[in-house]
């Protein structure tokens, strides 16, 4: 592999293994996974529960380190980094969206989006401007002072997406982002991911067990029993117009 090839891949994981020891039992959550993802891709990681997809996402998201294997993130080896170095990488390179949104209670949308920038050391004015811009980008320009209790599920997930974009990450990792939403809202959120991928050039990785979600991404990696079962290119990406779904 030449240097240019390496630069093409924003994620380049080789033989990634994660072993959990529970008492005397060894559980191989990941059993030698090779995964390469190009910059600007939109893809799904699919698999039933217990397949290892969450473990893979944790490792790709630098939330956890592999037991063995190599992981190059944006050309830098990260598989052997310590806690603090991983925190810095998460802060600068990665954005996370969760099924349960994980917003802070009693905290305004503005402050939710500001939080990652506080940790990244972005100063007051710049931070506020950036947070406003991100909330406008996800369509919440009018609700910046609202707390989670004052927002719908879809709006909360939009705040979480705005938060994940705060430090201008290269990669956005979404773990079942539509799992807690109704169909129409789920499709709206998917549309937002697709737009961010298309317009902002962000690499978006969606972890899901939902076929309807996976159908909407050009590439789907199927995981089963800690191994990649198949890695397919979707010839017919389903593109649903959210407005075609009736609200209930």
């Amino acid at each position: 592999m030449t240097t240019e090839d390496a630069e093409d891949y924003v994620i380049d994981g080789r033989n990634l293994t994660k072993v959990y020891t529970m008492g005397d039992n060894e559980v191989r959550a990941l059993d030698g996974v090779d995964v390469k993802i190009k910059r600007g891709e939109l893809l799904s990681i699919m698999g039933p529960s217990g397949s290892g997809k969450s473990t893979l996402m944790a490792i790709l998201g630098c939330l956890d380190s592999p037991t063995s294997g190599e992981y190059m993130l944006d050309g830098e080896p990260v598989h052997a980094l310590g806690d603090n170095a991983l925190a810095t990488i998460r802060s600068k390179q990665l954005g996370f969206v969760f099924q349960q949104f994980n917003l802070l209670p009693r905290t305004s949308a503005m402050e939710q989006v500001s939080m990652p920038m506080i940790y990244a050391g972005v100063r007051g004015r710049k931070r506020k401007q950036r947070a406003e811009k991100m909330l406008q980008l996800v369509g919440l320009g009018e609700r910046m002072d609202h707390t989670p209790a004052e927002l719908s599920g879809g709006q909360q997930q939009r705040v979480a997406i705005a938060r994940s974009l705060a430090n201008d990450p290269a990669i956005l990792l979404a773990d079942e982002p539509t799992g807690a939403l109704d169909t129409k809202t789920g499709i709206e959120i998917m549309a937002l991911f697709k737009r961010l991928n298309r317009e902002e050039g962000i690499t978006v990785i969606i972890v899901t067990h939902d076929v309807e979600v996976a159908e909407q991404t050009p590439r789907v990696i199927h995981i089963r029993d800690g191994l990649i079962e198949k890695d397919v290119i979707n010839e017919t990406v389903v593109d649903i117009d959210p407005d075609s779904i009736p609200a209930h």
Binding site: A87, R90, S91, M115, A166
Partner: peptide
């Protein structure tokens, strides 16, 4: 706990 997890996920270090 979840709040702490989130803060760490978005870049808070141990010391922070």
């Amino acid at each position: 706990t979840r709040e702490i997890g989130l803060r760490k996920a978005v870049g808070a270090k141990r010391a922070t």
